[in-house]
Computed example of a mutant assay.
Amino acid sequence: MTAIQWDHPHPHLLNVTVQDQHIDLMRHTNNVVYLQWLEDVAWAHSIALGLGPAQYEALGHGMVVRQHELTYIQATRLGDELVLATWLTHADKLTLQRHYQFVRQADGATVFRGKTHFVCVDIAQGKVRRMPEAFFSAYSAAVIPQVS
């Protein structure tokens, strides 16, 4: 395994292996699978920060996607072992920004990068609302310092 060069320090990591069900007609991982992996690693990170689905329900608020930016750099294929990394790069009382970098373990190649802009909504009304203090405290504490 080659040493991984992360885009930012201290990523939250999730390991995945490309399975048969991930492969499309082009014999590589289907683009939609990357979107699922974004959600998987984002939830894993949020849960590690103490904000899982149960806390969202209890507080009546949740973070929903407003915009994704997805960059597919290299194809991944059946059996590839990947490390999915994510970081929070911005948090204010209404929004979060999360960055992602997916790396193939075998050669350390970055195969994918992405960003997601989230907004906080009231679950019952579906309207944009300020984050509950528990959200803002946990998420803002996890924002990485910006490096120029």
Rank of each mutant, 00 (worst) to 15 (best):
E39I: 02
V128K: 12
L49T: 03
Q55I: 13
C120Y: 11
L25G: 13
G60N: 02
R77D: 01
W43S: 11
R104L: 06
P145I: 04
V128Y: 10
F118A: 00
D20F: 11
V32H: 06
E57Q: 15
T110Y: 02
G114T: 11
A142T: 10
Q55R: 11
K127H: 07
L51R: 11
A138N: 09
I23N: 13
V121S: 05
T95I: 07
I4D: 00
H22D: 09
M131E: 00
I73N: 05
S46C: 14
R98D: 02
V65M: 02
V128N: 10
A91T: 00
R77A: 12
I73V: 13
R77I: 06
L82H: 08
Y139K: 04
A109P: 05
V33D: 09
T29I: 02
Q21N: 15
E133S: 15
A141L: 10
I123E: 15
G60M: 12
T2F: 00
T116H: 08
E69Q: 07
H10P: 00
T76S: 10
G62S: 10
R129T: 15
A44Y: 08
G52R: 14
D122E: 14
Q105H: 01
L84P: 08
W6D: 07
F112W: 10
L51H: 14
V33G: 03
A85Q: 06
Q97S: 11
L35W: 05
L84Y: 11
W87Q: 01
F102N: 01
H90L: 05
T95S: 14
D24P: 10
A142I: 08
R98V: 02
Y56E: 15
G114P: 08
A48H: 13
Q125T: 14
Y56P: 01
V16R: 13
P53N: 08
N31T: 09
E69S: 14
V119P: 04
